[in-house]
Design a binder for these strands. Sequence first.
DNA 1: ACGATACCCTGATGGC
DNA 2: TGCCATCAGGGTATCG
Length: 289
Amino acid sequence: MPELPEVEHLRRTLEPRLLGRRVVDATLHRRDVAVGPKDPPGGFARQRAVVRPSRLRAAQLLADATIERVDRRGKLLAIIASDGRALGVHLGMSGQLFWAPAGARLPTDHVHATWRLDDRSRLLFRDPRRFGGLWLAETRDELPPWRGLGPDALTLPPEHLAGLLAKARRPIKAALLDQGLLAGVGNIYADEALHRVGIHPAELACEISAPRALRLGEALRELLRLAVEAGGSTLRDYRAAEGQAGAFQLQHAVYGRAGQACLTCGEVLESGMLAQRTTVWCPRCQGGL
DNA sequence: ACGATACCCTGATGGC
DNA sequence: TGCCATCAGGGTATCG
């Protein structure tokens, strides 16, 4: 559920708390949520029923390092140390990064990693469903998930979208969800963006004309910008660094509203499965197909 | 190269 | 009240 706006808002709430802080120590409570430079290539260390514990030692989770900045690309966060090392954090479906000052209460269940900082504050990674994970690499650009990502959806110039879509012979919704094509858009914001510009989610990406692709690019950028400003969408699990919920879910026009009236034209919103994801659209506003 | 499918996982929800 | 089935969705791997 956390998509680009949620991760960007988390980044913005987290960065001021971490900047210049030295990591006193780090604890990895579950080794199978982390992937280090010496682990076999591939995605997560955990594969199917076979649990492959990471060879990462806790000390490699930036212990003793000083945090210089927090970067983001798509839905991936990268905590960068002054020596260049990078800790990648993906929230998956239910992942959270919490920061709390010395002595403050923090959740204890489903906590897979904890960092203690030199001002006695703590950072922790919690992820009940464990679809998320941690990666460590010598540099940010060597983080395996970072390398596979397309351009970031928030900063992509809208006029570049047409070129990306022209090569995708599949439904526009499937293309928008492809993180290698464009990084950051998930199920919520794909549906919302397509509704805003009146494009049916099943329309083939390569058949969208350049002017319409441009409008989609502009709408997507504006949508993501507004969602970041609102603190992201909190449906259930998403929280910012100090536990704050987002508010953008109140402005969703289609996501989660199947069977209800379109806010633009009053037509009943339809839903179906597309690219293995629940998809909601307005048959009148997005009728093109 | 693409699409469809299975799988990972837990918590919420609804039916009986 | 409890039990079970179903759903949600970020990804990756695998097969066609």
